[in-house]
């Protein structure tokens, strides 16, 4: 039973990353109509940011949690202003191709300087150790990742669904021209939205640095799984992406326990099943 609970926890952690990443993808897709293929690369940049902050500047994990998303977010906003905004009005597929190119560049540069092996990043002192719950041993850092991601996800949901800013955002998703006529600076909002989505990816990167090590290709395979998560959940609903992300993480964790051979394919198999039964995805509208 110990092993089962441990795998469930690993599943929840992977689920947090899926949720944070697919949430960012959904927010970006809503505003920019672009599937951000560079999301995995930016997640990796978040982790590397934390690594640099610790080893070059001497700022610890808690600072990294704050600064890395801001830095990567700014990098994302520069990308949006210099490249992505020129794609408005073109076929969606060009956005996919452009961001795929950006991902190749970013990953290639990091691979050149850091190879393919992982760099260690220590768990912060305050989160070391674990609690014995009786039925299992709970490492504090892992519990922290799950709870913190959940809080961030719910906060993002609240920001978009319940605040005035979120209302503007949703309105601009529906009809940008009309919202612009009301005096809202839509292009700036688009840039900030991309920054927000990218910042969420970077945050996931910082959270994963102590667990998964810091590697140039850490986001490359992850983003494909997240795409499958997005296909399953659909990008129409923020809460939908969060729940699908966590649920699929848990299912993957369970698979690791009951049938480990299928653990890295289970999300794709589920995607196939969902497509066969309900082609529009679980929460999605027709694309």
């Amino acid at each position: 039973m110990q092993a089962l609970y441990a795998q469930l926890l690993v599943g929840l952690i992977n689920g947090s990353f899926y949720a944070l990443l697919s949430l960012g993808l959904a927010v970006i897709f809503g505003m920019l109509n672009i599937i951000n293929f560079a999301h995995g690369a930016l997640y990796m940049m978040g982790a590397f940011c934390a690594y640099f902050l610790l080893n070059l500047v001497g700022l610890n994990y808690w600072w990294a949690l704050l600064i890395a998303p801001i830095l990567v977010g700014i990098f994302g906003m520069i990308l949006e202003r210099t490249m992505l905004q020129w794609l408005t009005g073109l076929d969606h597929l060009y956005g996919l191709l452009l961001t795929f190119g950006i991902a190749l560049i970013v990953q290639g540069v990091f691979q050149n300087y850091f190879g393919s092996s992982g760099l260690p990043y220590a768990i912060p002192d305050q989160l070391k150790g674990g609690i014995n719950l009786g039925f299992m041993f709970l490492p504090i850092y892992r519990a922290w990742v799950v709870i913190f991601s959940l809080v961030i996800c719910v906060a993002t949901w609240f920001l978009i669904e319940k605040t005035r800013l979120g209302a503007y955002l949703r309105a601009a998703t529906e009809n940008p021209t009309l919202v612009r006529a009301f005096g809202v600076n839509v292009p700036r909002m688009i840039t900030l939205t991309y920054g927000l989505g990218v910042g969420l990816a970077a945050l996931a990167g910082v959270l994963s640095a102590p667990i998964n090590q810091v590697r140039p290709l850490m986001g490359a395979d992850l983003i494909i799984v997240v795409f499958a998560v997005v296909v399953i959940g659909g990008m129409g609903s923020i809460m939908g992406s969060i729940i699908t992300g966590f649920a699929l993480g848990v299912i993957e964790g369970l698979t690791k326990y009951f049938y480990p051979e299928a653990s890295n394919t289970v999300v794709f198999v589920l995607m196939v099943l969902v497509l066969l039964v309900k082609p529009t995805g679980l929460t999605g509208r027709a694309a």
Partner: peptide, 9 residues
């Protein structure tokens, strides 16, 4: 890889 990415962009 970097050059290929640049060509894409």
């Amino acid at each position: 890889t970097v050059i290929q990415g640049s060509i894409f962009v």
